[in-house]
């Protein structure tokens, strides 16, 4: 899988039986790598699903893949959530053919901003704040990051300010819904929504 290989490049490769088979490359993957790859695959599936939903305004999307990010954040910590999110953004852009196109940088900036906010928001006292709060803060950060890139790079015109209330309202609604869905998933003590049929090794 693309996700798995990308994830393990940092660890380098280790040859088995030096000199015997120089052409074979073995990537040693840990259980955590497999888990991250699996989660990124689920997020990618949701991204594709979401692209099939018609949107009244370009840019207003439910962001269903963030449900996966929220669950991974709660279960496995921020590092894993960042991996899953960034893998989803890169692999998703490769799938849709928008890698390094403006759309890619828009989703990347949104993802990076919401990850940064999540890094702070996850330290909110869990007695009072749940996934719904995380989701709403991340959604607002996402839209703020995107609007920043749009204004600085794509459309440096004050006219885009007109769209901000619409995007903010969408962030609030979809952030709440995604947070509730994530909370519902984590309510069952079973492990996260996994695709066990796909073997990554």
């Amino acid at each position: 899988m693309t996700a798995s290989i990308t994830e393990n490049r940092g660890e380098g490769r280790r040859e088995k039986g030096e000199g015997e088979k120089p052409s074979s490359i073995l990537l040693n993957t840990t259980a955590e790598d497999h888990h991250i790859a699996r989660m990124a695959a689920v997020a990618l599936g949701l991204t594709i699903l979401e692209n099939a939903i018609p949107s009244p305004l370009p840019g207003v999307k439910p962001g269903l893949a963030n449900i996966v990010t929220l669950i991974v954040l709660a279960r496995y910590g921020w590092r894993a959530a960042a991996w899953v999110t960034l893998l989803r953004v890169v692999a998703g852009s490769l799938l849709f053919g928008s890698f390094l196109a403006p759309g890619f940088f828009l989703s990347l900036s949104g993802a990076v901003c919401s990850l940064l906010v999540l890094a702070v928001a996850r330290h909110l006292p869990s007695r009072w704040f749940g996934p719904v709060s995380h989701s709403i803060y991340a959604a607002f950060a996402h839209i703020a990051g995107q609007m920043g890139v749009v204004y600085v790079w794509l459309i440096p015109h004050a006219g885009i300010a007109y769209l901000i209330p619409i995007f903010a309202a969408a962030a609030l609604v979809f952030g709440t819904v995604n947070g509730l869905i994530a909370a519902r998933f984590m309510e069952n003590k079973t492990d996260c929504p996994q695709i066990t049929q796909i073997r990554t090794d």
């Binding site: 909110l124 006292p125 007695r127 009072w128 704040f129 749940g130 996934p131 719904v132 709060s133 947070g179 509730l180 909370a183 519902r184 309510e187």
Partner: peptide, 8 residues
Amino acid sequence: HLKAGDWL
């Protein structure tokens, strides 16, 4: 699923 902080 909505705690006090979430309402806030």
